[in-house]
Design a protein around this nucleic acid. Structure first.
Length: 226
DNA sequence: GCGACAG
DNA sequence: ATCTTGTCGC
């Protein structure tokens, strides 16, 4: 079936309720050496109609960049909180198709199940790619959590309507936490473990930082270098 | 009706 | 997400 049909915002909400039934949770691969992991991110220009996406594939644990997929297209959907996937997946899909090396899992800049209908960008992307995904967001869409300790590695369960939907994770001492939630073919425990080990120095997971740099490099047209 | 609201 | 300079702190 078509996992990303052209829909109006109202239809998209209903469609998410169908998609969420297809989500499966399971442990991510263990950190044992030599697997490929990726980060995905999008970027736009002030008030232009064009969007950009980049997916960076790295070898773990060396973090050497193995491949970079890029995509550019006209924006076909507005930004509506809760419907981000309909705006960004078309861009990310182009980047995904241009990859030669497919990763064991992808860290997506946004929510996974920490979403009003448990169908955030990472969840939807995981279904489209039939690949494990982790949602790593810089701010909250829904849910509440207790305060965190200042130390790196501190965490607090994220709950929404009585359900555990993710975790607020402090990846760097004294800095705002990131919000981690399972996408598709992942689970909360292993997702949080991976995000912490992928953020040894900065708040944002390294693969996301790399994707962020690459997508902005693409948008500014200064591709080469790396 | 009011406030919240990933990127 | 984007715009935007300097500046405080390790």
């Amino acid at each position: 079936m078509n996992l990303l049909p052209d829909l109006t915002p109202k239809e998209a909400v209903q469609f998410q309720k169908v998609l969420v039934e297809m989500i499966r949770f399971r442990p991510l691969p263990p950190p044992g050496g030599n697997l490929l992991i990726a980060g995905a991110d999008c970027s736009y220009e002030k008030r232009a109609t064009t969007g950009y996406a980049a997916i960076v594939v790295c070898r773990w644990p060396s973090m050497e960049i193995v491949d970079v997929g890029r995509g550019t297209a006209d924006i076909g959907f507005p930004y509506v909180p809760g419907l981000l996937s309909f705006r960004e997946i078309p861009l990310l899909q182009l980047a995904w198709e241009s990859l030669r090396a497919k990763p064991a899992f992808v860290v997506v800049d946004g929510q996974g199940m920490a979403h009003p209908r448990r169908m955030g960008l990472a969840s939807h992307a995981g279904l489209v790619w039939n690949t494990p995904t982790i949602g790593s967001a810089k701010s909250l869409l829904v849910g509440e959590h207790r305060p965190l300790r200042e130390k790196r590695g501190s965490r607090a369960i994220l709950k929404h309507q009585g359900e555990t939907i993710g975790v607020a994770l402090r990846t760097r001492e004294g800095v705002k936490p990131v919000y981690v939630s399972p996408g598709h073919l992942a689970d909360l425990k292993t997702a949080a473990q991976w995000i912490l080990r992928l953020s040894p120095k900065y708040r944002i997971p390294e693969v996301i930082r790399l994707a962020h740099q690459e997508v902005n490099r693409l948008r500014r047209k200064d591709l080469p270098a790396r």
